[in-house]
Simulated assay, not measured.
Amino acid sequence: MKLKNVLKSAGVLGAVGLGSLASQAMADQEFLLTITRPNQLHVIDMSSNTIARTCDIPGPFGTGSIALSPDNTHAYVLSNGTKDVYGFDIRNCDITFKAEQSSPTEQVISMQSIAVSADGKELYTVQNPIKKLSDRFEVEQPRLAVFNIKDGMDAKVVRTFPVDRRITKIAVTDENEVILGGADLKGINPKTGEVRMVSKLASWEKGPLWLPPDAFAMHSQGEQMHEYIMPYVTAKFDSEDWNFETAEWWWGISRVDLKTGKATRDEVLPFQFIIFNFVADPRNPDILYGSFNTLSKHDISKKETLIVHDMPHTYYDLNISGDGKTLYVGGTSSDISIHDSDTLEKIGSIQLTGDMSTSDLRVATIRN
């Protein structure tokens, strides 16, 4: 080969190599977020499944609930027994936001409910207030509370609106409606307080042969599909005598598309074992994975359970990588179990410094 051809080939290869490096440098970064006792936020690099940094959260552990900013660079967490909210820049652990929700005359608990507006300017919690009087406590009306994130380390409520009781997990649509996970799924406009029914559960009208659903929004971690999934259990009886032993038992889901705010509700699987949380495969919305004492894979278009993998202990929740290939199963204890989504076989684990208890597993994707 002539020298100029060698140099030309080397130049092409060099350009390809530089292009490959540039592509790698510009790749999106995926981080898995969770909280462990005594009270630490862990930022896990999903490319290596190692802890990138650990952020100390002021105050005692809450429930481990986490909400992400729209650009995924900031995480907002409930702390101090879910009375306070702290915001962290997950790139360096800087605390950028603080809201103390209680006062000397009122105690406020927010349970799991925390979310950030679609434009990243506001933060929402559902406050469950108790008035502290000299001789008694008085339970007050729950309310949606709105904070301005720009208020930083001394954020105060800027407006409130009354909401139902029993609300736990909340989420925000692209049109900035707050989805409220309670006895029914409702949506509230955080500017006006107007409420609409999104999906009937406790108040559904399926007839006398159906058991009213038992629904619980402890974890709804559908960021990869930009959705909110609320599981429920129900039963269909063969007569109005309601014989529980002969009834057909079903898992159902209320599923909200956070882009449009539209919801679907359906009984999707025969009830065979407990599932605490569902997450969808971003490659196929009909494929759901569930976790509790087992890790399971389901095709809801066929109402079939495809694979069940026994776990060594209870895991409350799970999440999935953006490419849909890897499952992360956590909560309850101090280990995150990593699994191949095709086979559910375990392919790794991440050991944390304390137990996660009821904490979320969130995937924060930082776009480059």
Rank of each mutant, 00 (worst) to 15 (best):
T173A: 10
G87Y: 02
Q101S: 13
E100W: 00
G87D: 03
S113V: 09
G152A: 07
I109E: 13
L68Q: 09
A75R: 04
A145S: 15
A145V: 12
R159T: 13
L78W: 05
E122G: 00
P104N: 06
D151C: 04
E177H: 06
V146D: 02
T168Q: 15
A115Q: 06
N80L: 00
A118Q: 10
T105M: 11
N92R: 03
R143C: 01
P129V: 06
G120V: 10
I170W: 07
K121L: 12
E122L: 15
K98L: 07
A171C: 04
D154V: 02
D151K: 07
Q112E: 14
R91K: 12
A67V: 04
I66A: 07
L133S: 14
M153P: 01
K98F: 13
I170C: 08
I95P: 02
P104F: 06
D174G: 13
P162S: 04
S65M: 04
F88A: 00
Q127Y: 00
G81D: 05
N128R: 10
I130R: 12
D174T: 08
F97L: 04
L68P: 01
Q101M: 13
E175N: 15
S110K: 05
V108F: 08
L78G: 03
M153G: 12
D135W: 09
A75K: 06
T105W: 09
H74A: 07
I95K: 13
L123H: 10
P58C: 09
F88N: 01
D119Q: 09
I66D: 05
G81N: 11
D119K: 11
P58R: 08
N80G: 11
Q112H: 14
A155C: 06
V85G: 02
E177Q: 14
R143S: 14
K132E: 12
G59Y: 08
G62W: 08
F161Y: 15
I95V: 13
P142A: 08
A67T: 05
G59S: 09
L123E: 09
P58K: 10
V157C: 01
T168W: 14
S117Y: 09
K121T: 14
V126G: 07
Q127K: 12
A99F: 07
S103W: 05
Y124W: 09
A75S: 11
A145F: 10
R166K: 11
K98D: 01
N80T: 13
F137M: 11
E140A: 13
D151W: 06
D174F: 03
L133H: 12
G62A: 07
F97Y: 14
G120W: 11
